[in-house]
Amino acid sequence: MTISSPVLRNSMRLILPITLLYAMYAMLKGHHEPGGGFIGGMIFATAICTYRMSHGALAQLRLMPVHPRVLIFLGLGLALGTSVIPLLLGEPFLRSAVGEFHLPFSSHPFHYASAMAFDLGVMLVVVGVGVGMITQLSEELE
């Protein structure tokens, strides 16, 4: 399903990078501010889907040249991996590590929690599911 409207096409070019960037931001800052894996994933999937509507299936394929199920498996694997690692270290399942580290060229300490890796897995799954379902149904329509 493609909507051939020049306005939409051209504005999408501008909107898409910003939306994707915001999705990443929402995911990464999600531990402290509104956001997180679910939200970031939904924003990301919505952006991709609107892009598909304006530019067509092949453009989407060029932007994201993998089948969405790859994202799903990657995400699930990442989430499961982060939850299993504490087990290998003799800690309870899913225990997260919290700490700070200093990035080079930055005086501000970077606060991290290992739960964020888990969140990244969640995001990948949500993106895969959202994009995958819309893509599948659109293909049926075409």
């Binding site: 531990h31 509104p34 997180g36 894996g37 997260s96 606060h111 888990f118 969140d119």
Partner: peptide, 22 residues
């Protein structure tokens, strides 16, 4: 030991109730 995050909702999702989210 805390969740290490200020967004309670997100900490609940990925930490306190992480197994649920999985």
């Amino acid at each position: 030991r805390g969740g290490g995050g200020r967004n309670i909702v997100n900490v609940i999702l990925v930490d306190f109730r992480g197994f649920d989210t999985l």
